[in-house]
Simulated scan of single mutants.
Amino acid sequence: MDLQKVVEGGPWSFEQGMLVYKQILENEDPKEVMLNEIDIWVQIYDIPKGFVSETILQSVGNYIGEFIKSDPANFNGTWKTYVRIRVKMNVIKPLKRRMRIKREGGNWSWINFKYE
Rank of each mutant, 00 (worst) to 15 (best):
I40M: 05
G9H: 09
K88D: 10
I47A: 00
K96G: 03
E37W: 04
R103S: 10
Y115P: 02
V60G: 00
I24F: 08
E28I: 08
F113D: 04
A73G: 13
N62G: 06
G17Q: 14
G65P: 00
G105F: 05
K31Y: 13
W12H: 11
P48V: 06
K88I: 06
G61I: 00
M89W: 03
P48G: 05
G65A: 05
L57T: 00
E26F: 13
S109K: 04
V7Q: 12
D2R: 15
V20T: 06
F14P: 00
N107A: 13
F113S: 01
E26C: 10
K102N: 12
R84N: 09
S53R: 01
S53I: 09
V42G: 00
V33K: 10
W41R: 06
V6K: 05
K80S: 13
P11A: 09
Q16F: 14
I92L: 15
R98N: 11
R84M: 13
Y82H: 14
I68L: 01
Y45N: 08
P72D: 04
W108R: 07
D46V: 06
I40E: 02
G17E: 14
Y115K: 03
G106H: 11
T78D: 10
D29F: 08
V52K: 00
R97H: 12
Q16S: 10
T55G: 13
S70C: 13
N107M: 14
E37F: 08
V7K: 05
P30C: 13
S70W: 00
I24T: 15
W79K: 15
W41I: 08
G17P: 04
V42D: 01
I92R: 12
P11I: 03
Q23K: 11
F67D: 01
R103A: 11
K49Q: 12
L3P: 01
M34K: 15
F51Y: 07
L19D: 08
S109D: 07
R103T: 12
V87T: 02
